[in-house]
């Protein structure tokens, strides 16, 4: 276990930010802490780094206790905060040099590493420009460059794609995927579930300071959505089709969505659906198997929680 927490709790006065969190992240994993704003993701991250003290519970990151052994821990753990800021009047190079000195890197080695990470993040050409003029995307990449500067074993990213345009976000997610390829363990938080679901091995969904769901994206979909297979059927005319399709074995439910039908099934029933549509005398326009999205898992889960309450 690279990151392990037990009964981790943080209270600010009467407000509970994180409650009874048991988290276990294995080496080389990309783990996503997901949930809406204010659900306790950033507080959890700060506790993992020893930047805020837990009210109760234990944390171990790489075997270190963040409260008592923060220096050894922070030498090997890189952190990119959600609204990353730099000294605007200093250049990218100077900003990195400061961080290198804080990490106690020898000057010669620091320069080699700085050149490498700037190159890797595509910032080599702007290294001598003041960071004040950098765009949000460039700052984010400079932040990742700084994280890589200490050659970390674990990287913790807080809302890495927040405020990036879709293209920059995809590019940045690609860079995170590159970290996994190097064997770096990545913990990232986000409220943009659909953006990160592609790169996370496992995710944990937060709600009001509690980890309510955890697992691989497909598992969660299976568990929460009932049928893990969702099929969109475009056919005309639609009359009478939903009853027919609902009667097919393995289909959990059928919903009308605009001019399409949406099926939830426990298995891939596309051949049966196609046959049923044609047998009903309708023409089949489209038949698509949807990937389950975390947004839906999340929405459905809380729908059920509210219904249960």
């Amino acid at each position: 276990m690279v990151i392990e927490t037990q009964g981790l709790t943080k209270r600010y006065g009467k407000v509970v930010a994180v409650e009874g969190l048991n988290l276990a992240v294995e080496a080389g994993e990309v783990y996503g802490l997901l949930g809406p704003n204010g659900s306790g993701k950033t507080t959890t991250i700060l506790m993992l780094l020893g930047l805020t003290e837990p009210t109760a519970g234990t944390v171990r990151v790489l075997g270190f206790d963040p409260v008592r052994e923060p220096l050894s821990l922070k030498k090997q753990v890189g952190y990119l905060p959600d609204s990353v800021g730099f000294y605007g009047e200093m250049t990218a190079w100077e900003n990195l040099a400061y961080i290198a000195r804080l990490n106690g890197l020898p000057k010669a080695e620091a320069e080699v590493r700085m050149r490498q990470v700037l190159e890797r993040m595509g910032l080599a050409e702007v290294a001598d420009r003041p960071v004040g003029a950098f765009s949000r995307g460039m700052r984010q990449r400079l932040g990742l460059a700084e994280v890589l500067l200490k050659e970390p074993k674990v990287v913790i990213l807080d809302e890495p794609t927040l405020g990036l345009d879709p293209e920059a976000a995809q590019e940045f997610l690609g860079m995170i995927r590159g970290l996994k390829a190097e064997g770096i363990t990545v913990l990232l938080s986000s409220h943009l579930l659909h953006q990160v679901q592609a790169i996370c091995d496992r995710v944990g969904l937060f709600h009001r300071g509690k980890l309510v769901l955890e697992g691989r994206v497909e598992e969660l979909a299976q568990r929460v959505l009932g049928g893990a297979y969702r099929i969109r059927v475009g056919a005309s005319p639609l009359e009478g089709l939903s009853e027919r399709l609902g009667a097919l074995p393995g289909v959990a439910r059928v919903q009308l969505e605009g001019t399409e039908l949406r099926l939830e099934a426990t298995q891939d029933v596309r051949p049966q659906v196609a046959r049923a549509v044609l047998e009903a005398g309708a023409s089949l326009n489209s038949l698509v198997l949807e990937q389950p999205s975390l947004d839906e898992v999340y929405a459905r889960y809380f729908q059920e929680v509210r219904h249960a309450a």
Partner: peptide
Amino acid sequence: NRNTLSRVLAQPIY
């Protein structure tokens, strides 16, 4: 105000 505090304190210093 420059959002640099958490970044600096995430380095191995007290």
